[in-house]
Amino acid sequence: MISAEHLVKTYNLGGSIIRALDDVSFEIKDGTMTAITGASGSGKSTLMNVLGCLDQPDSGTYTLGGEDVSKLGKDRLAEIRNRRIGFIFQTFNLLPRMSALENVELPLLYAGRSEAQAAAEAALRTVGLGDRMYHEPNQLSGGQRQRVSIARAIVSNPDIVLADEPTGNLDSKTGVEIMALLKALHEQKRTIIIVTHDPDIAQHCSNELHMRDGQIVERRGT
């Protein structure tokens, strides 16, 4: 379970103060699929950074699986990202010159876990890439790359999978396939949060938080 209470995050842009998160509170239950929507500049990217433990709020509390993570140090945050959060990026962000398998193994290597290879192979099979494990990213199509990145996001069995415009760089047909994959993961009781500006994507999700000017102005399902 994720709970956010009174999150505030401000930026100073050339003298003017921007309230990117302005007293945001919400709860996301385990096993749900939630969309965070909003136009650019609405604060959804900032919210995603905070939820992904890449950034910390100025005030307010963010509880992830019962632990308040809004006041933790850098190393501890890195561990939270490593074990409890899986990232899926719009631009895939796979590491070049490393095979799909090595890319997926990487979070486990940073965690110091043994049998990384077996777990990575299982994750790749889950996303349907059992036959592409030794290909490097530049030998894979966009859809396949995004599948590798999904495998990397789920390999360490995180509490939440955080996807930032997962279909943004894909053609519509591939986008549908990726959404189907994310839904399948959701059906396996994973908590999935998708940040998107696309209402069609949000339609796939049971819950939705719509943001404008740093505030949640519309809630569906939660």
Binding site: G52, L54, K74, D75, A78, E79, R81, N82, R83, F87, F89, N93, L94, L95, P96, L106, P107, Y110, A111, R152
Partner: peptide, 16 residues
């Protein structure tokens, strides 16, 4: 730089 960002996002610490 991007690679460093990705590594950090998936759990690399500063010392890594």
């Amino acid at each position: 730089t991007r690679e460093i960002g990705v590594r950090k996002a998936i759990g690399a610490k500063d010392r890594d």
